[in-house]
Structures are given as structure tokens and as C-alpha cells.
């Protein structure tokens, strides 16, 4: 079990960000929302660890600090 990583962890961050935008390019809002939802689920399954997932939900809510 490892902790949620909240320090920079993506190599070539600009490349990833461009890839993320490209995936949404040309999509209607509904299709973009669906893509994001599927992406969250794919990533969540990859992580698996429930502590990390709980921490990630909390981090994303921006209510902690």
C-alpha cells in the first residue's frame, strides 16, 4: 500500500496534458463528460487501493487545505 502522490509524478507533463485535450477534441459536451467518467473509472481500477482512492477523492474536492 502506498500513499496518494501529490507531488509532480508525470514525466513530460505537457505531453500528457496535450494528449488529454486531444482526446476531447471535437467531442460534444455529453461525449466529453462520458469520456471523463470512463477515464476516472479506468484509472480508479488501476489504482485499486481504497485508501489511495479515498484520499484522491478528498484531494480532488479541494476542501482540505
Amino acid at each position: 500500500m502506498s500513499d496518494l502522490i501529490l507531488t509532480p509524478n508525470i514525466k513530460n507533463a505537457d505531453d500528457f496534458y496535450a494528449e488529454l485535450l486531444a482526446a476531447h477534441e471535437g467531442l460534444e459536451k455529453a461525449d466529453s463528460d462520458a469520456l471523463n467518467a470512463r477515464l476516472v473509472l479506468v484509472l480508479a481500477n488501476h489504482i485499486g487501493d481504497s485508501t489511495v482512492l479515498t484520499d484522491a477523492l478528498r484531494a480532488a474536492a479541494l476542501t482540505d487545505s
Binding site: 463528460d33 467518467a37 470512463r38 476516472v40 479506468v42
Partner: peptide, 15 residues
């Protein structure tokens, strides 16, 4: 949206 995402993914992936 999340429910439909689960169902769409279930067609392709076991997870």
C-alpha cells in the same frame, strides 16, 4: 453519466 460509463466499459473490460 457515471452509471452509463460503467455499463459502456463493462462491454469491453472485465474490471
Amino acid at each position: 453519466i457515471l452509471r452509463d460509463a460503467v455499463l459502456d466499459l463493462s462491454e469491453h473490460y472485465d474490471f
